[in-house]
């Protein structure tokens, strides 16, 4: 595999007045890989995409695509699906496809037909008459119809039903398998977990987690204990250096353990739980730990 990153963001900062929308973000996406960019609303995902594509100017840092800042020629092989529809509501899907055909050398009419069928879209209907999900599908059909080398997708499954969300995920995975590089954001963490090789999590404009999905999932274990009555006071467990965080929810206690999970199990067994188990972290746990830990703790304290 070529080690030169297709997307290279280095020390990127975007400031609006005195507000840092994104600060000192460094992120690289390798060829043929899928990188999921996660973060709560307002964390800087869309700003990052816009600056990367030249739709907004960065305050500091560099952003390269295929080794150079984005220029007109970059878009010959790059497709972008914005979070908010940028389609012409007064035009039909057929008009949009014709626009793509005239704009891109590598427009693939056969592929476009396949995508229109796949999303069950009507060619002659004006885009303004379509639902939000159908508009997303139109944007995706346009994006994939040029068989791009690079895909940047901001909430690509937004408004789609679960069946089409799966279709989108399959398209992303298929594109990467064919050599495309994908950078996408989503609030559907399950989708990101299924598709992405690598995950970056932003919070308040700062990169707080960055790594491969497997390495992140292997970094911690969850010890989950279920008690007959309320969760007992587990003195000092929160201060245990092996435990990164404790979460209480009703009769359930979850300890996020960085090492020696067996030792934590033994310690919790002293409180006679009804059931206790060691679970692997999933991406949702990683995300909540990274951005929403305080909220979960506060909300789950009552028994």
């Amino acid at each position: 595999m070529n080690s030169t990153p297709v997307i290279a963001i280095r020390d990127f900062t975007k400031r609006y007045g005195s507000f840092d929308a994104v600060s000192n973000l460094t992120l690289e996406v390798e060829p043929g890989s899928i990188c999921g960019l996660l973060g709560p609303n307002g964390s800087g995902k869309t700003t990052t995409f816009k600056c990367l594509l030249g739709l907004a100017r960065q305050t500091a840092g560099s952003m390269d695509v295929e080794g150079a800042p984005v220029g007109p020629q970059t878009f010959e092989n790059l497709s972008y699906v914005p979070e908010r529809s940028a389609l012409y509501e007064w035009l039909t899907l057929a008009d949009h496809l014709e626009f793509n055909r005239r704009s891109f050398k590598n427009y693939d009419a056969k592929r476009a037909d396949e995508l229109v069928s796949l999303f069950r879209l009507e060619r002659k209907k004006k885009v303004g008459k379509l639902s939000k999900g159908q508009q997303t599908a139109v944007a995706l059909a346009l994006a994939f119809s040029i068989r791009p080398r690079i895909l940047i997708l901001d909430e690509p499954a937004s408004g789609l039903d679960p069946v089409f969300q799966r279709v989108v995920l399959d398209l992303i995975i298929e594109a990467a398998a064919m050599g495309s590089t994908v950078l996408f954001s989503s609030h559907q963490i399950g989708q990101v977990e299924r598709a992405a090789d690598r995950v970056a999590i932003l919070k308040n404009g700062k990169l707080i987690v960055d790594g491969t999905v497997d390495s992140l999932k292997g970094s911690e274990k969850v010890v989950e204990a279920i008690f007959e009555q309320r969760v007992p006071d587990v003195d000092g467990l929160a201060d245990d250096p092996r435990v990164r965080r404790i979460e209480r929810s009703g009769r359930i206690l979850r300890a996020y353990v960085q090492s020696d999970s067996e030792g934590i199990v033994r310690r919790l067994n002293e409180f006679s739980p009804k059931n206790i188990s060691i679970l692997d972290l999933n991406l949702e746990d990683i995300f909540i730990n990274a951005v929403g830990g305080e909220i979960a703790m506060a909300g789950g304290d009552g028994a």
Binding site: L53, G54, L55, Q73, E76, L78, Y80, P82, A86, F104
Partner: peptide
């Protein structure tokens, strides 16, 4: 919806 035309080559 300028993203549409500004992401053309």
């Amino acid at each position: 919806g300028v993203e549409m035309v500004w992401t053309k080559p």
